[in-house]
Nucleic acid binder design. Structure first.
Length: 115
DNA sequence: CAGGTGACTCTTT
DNA sequence: GAAAGAGCCACCT
């Protein structure tokens, strides 16, 4: 059967993005722009967002480690859905990621810089 | 091929 | 700091 046919289709389209997300260490975060760049698609931050949005949970992807860039090396949960956003924040806090009072994440501390 | 959409990002008001 | 505009890429119809 092919109940995962759709998931396979998506994994095929955004495989490059998912491969990078898998390498994000626990307690670290990455911006969509950085994800796109590391995935070999510089400037495709929007596509990276689409990849996270369609990411099948069956892949066990740490999508919560991908956030949006706010300003001055600060990240911020960019999920439109308030429920999903709260879940992402909770997941990140569980990994040791701290949020500022303004709801931002200091990328200089929790941002992942691949060698 | 053209138009619409989006978990983006930057600049300007 | 919020809101609006513009630029960007990838996917779908």
């Amino acid at each position: 059967m092919s109940e995962d046919s759709e998931a396979e289709h998506i994994a095929k389209l955004y495989g490059d993005f998912y491969d990078v997300v898998r390498r994000i260490p626990k307690g670290r975060v990455l911006t969509y722009g950085q994800l796109a760049e590391l995935a070999g698609r510089p400037g495709a931050a929007r596509a990276a967002g689409a990849a996270m949005r369609c990411a099948p949970e069956t892949l066990g992807l740490p999508w919560q480690r991908v956030i949006g860039k706010k300003s001055k090396g600060q990240g911020r949960v960019s999920i439109h859905d308030p429920i999903g956003g709260a879940i992402q924040r909770q997941l990140l806090e569980s990994e040791g990621v701290e949020f500022t009072e303004a709801g931002g994440v200091p990328l200089g501390v929790f941002g992942w810089l691949p060698e």
